[in-house]
Amino acid sequence: MSFEVEVRRTLGDRMIEACFAAPSGLTVLRGVSGAGKTSVLNMVAGLLTPDQGRIIVNGQTLFDGAAGTNLPPHRRRLGYVFQDARLFPHMRVRGNLLYGYRLAPVDDRWMTLDEVVAFLGIAPLLDRWPRSLSGGEAQRVALGRALLSGARALLMDEPLASIDPARRSGIIEAILRIRNELSLPMLYVTHDPAEAEQLATQLVTIGG
């Protein structure tokens, strides 16, 4: 299994619960809005600590409430693509792409800058500042940044939501190629049934 997740967390008066195992491929997490899909992703990434449970990715235990294991986000090696690209505003596209690459141990790097740039077709953007990019361009750069960080799996939180519908197909194509050609396990949050249909190899419903 690529992801084995069993977590519980109370946020305010809401109880977020998820229990699923996902093989490699792209697993779509769906559920009504407010069910806590993004919170589950944040728990897998280490940005939110579950009250209890276990998170195992590719056989490595990232969190185990009972055993007291809790790896910090920077040791989890998971690429996270957010709904808003969250590029670093003070670095050019090249600097954004290389940020995680430079931090990754040499053995963990499995793509080079040139390969990622060619894969995503972002060569013309390299010297631009994030504020000058369109939503779709920024999201491609965010994808590339995550791939270059030596990630062993990707977490995606509605990566198409802030992109003009007419321009989504390019990103969808890139995500499908990551799934099919790079065989990178992905957890993908969306509430759009058509998007889920098009991308998912497995569906998981969060909340009730």
Binding site: L47, R86, G100, A146, S149
Partner: peptide, 20 residues
């Protein structure tokens, strides 16, 4: 949230402080 992004990319607290 931009700092969170840096952390998921492998930046520890000190590096995140210095570079972001």
């Amino acid at each position: 949230r931009v700092e969170d992004a840096a952390r998921t990319l492998g930046a520890g607290p000190g590096w995140c402080f210095l570079t972001i």
